[in-house]
Nucleic acid binder design. Structure first.
Length: 647
RNA sequence: GGCGGCGUAGCUCAGUUGGUCAGAGCAGAGGAAUCAUAAUCCUUUUGUCAGGGGUUCGAAUCCCUUCGCCGCUACCA
């Protein structure tokens, strides 16, 4: 057990995003996580810390194999193609990853093989084998030749083959998660594995209470995957294939020194979305412990967002392609806007209107215009050379103190992954500088011919803008560099360094400034409309008559009823309506005895998606009214034939 | 049903351990200024801090409870 050897070298970071499944196209959700990771990485590099920023694609699994077959190409070709989409998107967004891992890379496969062997030969504290063979049972579609989950079913049928799946059992290898749960739980509650935000830590700890079962690490029927070294008839299942990307990319399988440098020698930060919380917060540390490796230092779980109040989803057609935002706002502004819509770590809503507002107010009006006004004043009054400050007065000293203080605050926030607060501090400094410029009114000093005071004021303003360019660089790298170029920095200094320029006075008087252009041109009303996607907002909680008409309610008669074995609340009912007979399961056993039900007239929703409850398929839902602990069945006021439609 | 989270100005949200905590930004209104991307700066309206009860000298902040929303989960369907 090597948790104690995790004596971190200060200032070395491994920062990761999840690896994205190649069956998806890059969307705004992927972009969000990746941008955040990029911003964090750039902040650490700015501090001069060693940083390894890792992202990549997850490429195995039967879904990929299927998609490839459909497209008439090999799975590898499909992966090559789709993986490239992600790299293109990241290039557009200026993502500075150090390594792009692909689970179909030979080196990844090798690392997974090494890990699997390690796990296979590992024993837990009680001396039991960590990996054991067992049986996995699930719903299997013969057409697809794979297991499908209930969620994938449409009307109880496999959506691609329109056949009911069959229950099937296959041999699998399992990971003895149970042996590591107490330790993982302890590490999490003691913040040895830190989980942020705090709520997500609690949520994770809550999972332990619910009981977690050993999980399967292999599949027999899958062909596109990593072959188990100890059983060639099986492929590694997603979690033992995907999660190890974090170590394969830094040399777990082929470069122990490099691996050690980053993994045990650095602070490991995983950025994840809340959908994969359980796997990263529990499975992954457990696997690492079993393999004798250090557990991650920090798991940051960020939120999900809705778009204009609606969940994002392919079916809803409101998936935002990062391209569109980049076209409208540019790469830097897109980065800024996505990160500032809501606190990192919470769920939030993205609204076109708010993106526009924020672009204009923060970036164009506050920041861009500040740079413009100050630089133009320098150009006009000092023929484009940074003036030499003379006598710093109270106003200057205050602004200086604020600027220096902001640098400290921003880095403090970033250390805690509070990206929003960090950015907010930068914006505060921008506003402060605008206020300073207004208060000192350099244009009046120019008119009055007070050159001495004017020099001091303009130098102070420009120098503060330089500090802002330093702090803003990780968020908006291109624009920040552009601004630095205008401030007169040469190539090597376009990328700032905290060490060199954290103190006041880095900007050298006499430096010739460059050509002044608008950093973030304001969006005109026309441009706003050009890309608008707003749709009629539906009244919440109201449905249309068409929607109601989709519900097929019928009068039905109960033929027989019986208890469901082992279930307190469930009854299995045979019902009849019109010509049709059906079996449904209803949770009414605590209120109705089976013998009282036969012959009863009920109201049945007939076109509800079937569901398996306690192994029995239920093909409809009867209506009942409940209040507190009371429940009564709905029936008809007078006799009517079963099958009668209700509307 | 269980577990967890959330509910603070029109909007997005800050409010560590209870005592200037009733705030910021945006939007709205009025004004100043004119260097600047018609940008900036100043002033300003709205809040039973979801409702109720309790602990306390004192609670948005702790406890109980009700309501609403969200997530996971279950013998909901």
């Amino acid at each position: 057990m090597s948790i104690s050897e995790g004596e971190n070298v200060k200032g070395r970071y491994l920062i990761t995003t999840p690896i994205y499944y190649v069956n998806d196209k890059p969307h705004i959700g992927h972009a969000y996580t990746t941008i955040a990771a990029d911003v964090l990485s750039r902040f650490h590099r700015l501090k001069g810390e060693q940083t390894f920023f890792l992202t990549g694609t997850d490429e195995h699994g039967s879904k990929v194999a299927e998609a490839a077959e459909k497209a008439g190409i090999s799975p590898q070709q499909l992966c090559d193609k789709n993986s490239q989409f992600f790299r293109n998107a990241w290039q557009e967004l200026n993502i500075s990853y150090d390594y792009f891992v692909r689970t179909t890379d030979q080196r990844h496969i090798q690392a997974v093989t090494v890990l699997l062997n390690k796990l296979f030969s590992a024993k837990d504290q009680k001396g039991e084998k960590v990996v054991y063979s067992g049986e996995y049972s699930g719903l299997y579609c013969v057409g697809c030749e794979k297991f499908i989950t209930e969620k994938d079913l449409v009307d109880g049928l496999c959506p691609s083959h329109l056949k009911p799946p069959q229950s099937l059992t296959e041999k699998n290898y399992f990971f003895r998660l149970s042996s590591y749960l107490p330790l993982v739980q302890k590490l999490i509650s003691e913040d040895k594995i830190r989980i942020l935000p705090e709520e997500k830590k609690n949520e994770t700890l809550g999972l332990f209470k619910q009981g977690l079962e050993d999980f399967s690490i292999s599949r027999e029927k899958v062909t596109w995957g990593v072959t188990l070294p100890f059983d060639p008839s099986q492929k590694a299942y997603v979690w033992v294939d995907a999660l190890p990307n974090y170590i394969s990319a830094i040399g777990y399988g082929d470069n122990p020194e490099e691996f050690k440098k980053w993994w045990s020698g650095g602070k490991v930060i995983h950025l994840i979305g809340k959908d994969i919380l359980k796997f990263h917060n529990i499975y992954w540390p457990a696997m690492l412990l079993a393999a004798g490796e250090k557990t991650p230092d920090l798991l940051f779980v960020h939120g999900y967002f809705t778009v204009d109040g609606q969940k994002m989803g392919k079916s809803l057609g409101n998936v935002i392609d990062p391209h569109r935002l980049i076209e409208k706002y540019g790469s830097d502004a897109t980065r800024y806007l996505l990160l500032t819509q809501f606190p990192f770590g919470q769920d939030g809503d993205i609204q076109e209107k708010r993106l526009e507002n924020k672009y204009n107010s923060d970036l164009a009006n506050d920041f861009g215009n500040l740079a413009s006004r100050v630089l133009k004043l320098i150009k006009e009054n000092f023929s484009g050379e940074i003036p030499e400050p003379e006598d710093y007065q109270k106003e200057e000293k205050e602004l200086q103190a604020q600027a220096v203080d902001t640098v400290r605050k921003v880095f403090d926030y970033i250390e805690e992954i509070s990206i929003n607060q960090g950015i907010d501090e930068i914006l505060k400094l921008v506003r402060l500088t605008n206020r300073y410029v207004d208060k000192t009114a350099p244009w009046n000093l120019a008119k009055a011919g007070d050159k001495s005071r004017l020099r001091t004021v303009l130098y102070t303003s420009a120098e503060t803008i330089r500090v802002i360019s330093l702090l803003f660089y990780p968020v908006i790298p291109q624009k920040a560099s552009k601004l630095r170029e205008t401030l007169g920095f040469k190539e090597k200094e376009l990328i700032p360094s905290l060490e060199k320029e954290k103190d006041w006075g880095y900007l050298k008087p006499g430096t010739k400034i460059g050509e002044i252009t608008a950093l973030f041109p304001r969006l005109s009303e026309k441009e706003k409309k050009a890309v608008e996607i707003s749709k009629e907002k539906k009244m919440e909680n109201q449905i249309s008559i068409e929607e109601f008409a989709k519900l097929d309610f019928r009068v039905a008669k109960v033929l027989e009823a019986e208890r469901v074995e082992g279930a307190k609340k469930l009854l299995k009912l045979k019902v009849e309506f019109g010509e049709e007979k059906r079996e449904i399961v209803a949770g009414i056993a605590e209120h109705y005895k089976p013998e009282d039900l036969s012959g009863k007239t009920i109201i049945l929703l007939t076109n509800l998606k079937p569901a398996r409850i306690r192994g029995i398929e239920s093909n409809g839902m009867l209506l009942a009214a409940s209040e507190g602990g009371n429940l009564v069945l709905l029936t008809t006021d007078k006799e009517i034939n079963p099958g009668a439609k209700i509307s």
